[in-house]
């Protein structure tokens, strides 16, 4: 039994979960900053990204060291490769949270309808759920949970389309148009966070089955709902 090796693998996985928790915090913070127009909170989210990056680098280095010294094979190899990919997906998610926080600071002083804010609240909550499902499925080695991310993502995509439709109704006033433009990017950032959660699900599937598989074919557009 390779005790040291197993301990190092466990530590990497624990750090990955920690990184996931930080991403959840960043996501919640960025949505709150947007809803409440809290520029200070937005600045915190932006500064907070360093914590995520720190975990990201620690995991990268840990994986590099494991590959160089321990030559993992079979399930161990798949776990190390999955950690490497999931690490990148989480880091990207955190970057999107920073994007949302920055956009929230750039929003002109306009009063859109409350429906608008509700749309982002819904997308944010759905993305949070997806990240939780992804992290839990990884810990529990739960293939069904991982596969359920596709359906959850479809809900985020629908919410994204609704937000875009509402933006088109904002009118032609220059400040409204600027606001709408920024909000398209926020919506897009949330939609991408959902996609990354699905990608984590695919890594879990690879870890468990040894097969590379795309859950959904991104090159073919989904039917509009």
């Amino acid at each position: 039994m390779r005790t040291t090796f197993q301990e190092e693998l466990d530590l990497l996985e624990a750090t990955l979960q920690e990184e996931g928790e930080l991403v959840l915090r960043a996501l919640r913070g960025s949505i709150n900053a947007l809803e409440q127009r809290d520029h200070e909170l937005a600045s915190e989210v932006i500064a907070f990204d360093d914590d995520v990056d720190q975990r990201y680098v620690a995991i990268e280095e840990g994986v590099q060291s494991l590959l160089a010294r321990q030559t993992p094979v079979a399930t161990d190899l798949r776990l190390v490769l999955a950690i490497l990919h999931v690490n990148l997906h989480l880091e990207r998610m955190a970057d999107y949270c920073v994007t949302i926080a920055k956009l929230s600071q750039l929003v002109p002083d306009v009063e859109p309808s409350p429906r608008f804010v509700e749309g982002f609240e819904e997308m944010g909550a759905r993305c949070e759920e997806m990240i939780r499902v992804a992290l839990d499925s990884f810990v529990k080695r739960d293939l069904e949970g991982a596969e359920s991310l596709v359906d959850l993502d479809e809900l985020v995509d629908r919410a994204n389309r609704r937000v875009v439709e509402r933006i088109l109704e904002l009118g032609e006033a220059p400040r409204m148009r600027e606001y709408g433009l920024r909000m398209v990017l926020v919506s897009r950032a949330l939609e991408r966070i959902g996609d990354h959660a699905v990608d984590i699900g695919e890594q879990i599937s690879y870890l468990l089955t040894g097969e590379f598989r795309e859950f959904s074919d991104a090159s073919h557009s989904h039917p509009r709902s």
Binding site: R2, P72, V73, A74, T75, D76, L77, R78, T209, G210
Partner: peptide, 13 residues
């Protein structure tokens, strides 16, 4: 990468 038998998995890892 993905042995079929648990005994193989245990040995190679």
């Amino acid at each position: 990468t993905n042995p079929s038998d648990q005994r193989t998995e245990d040995y190679v890892t």
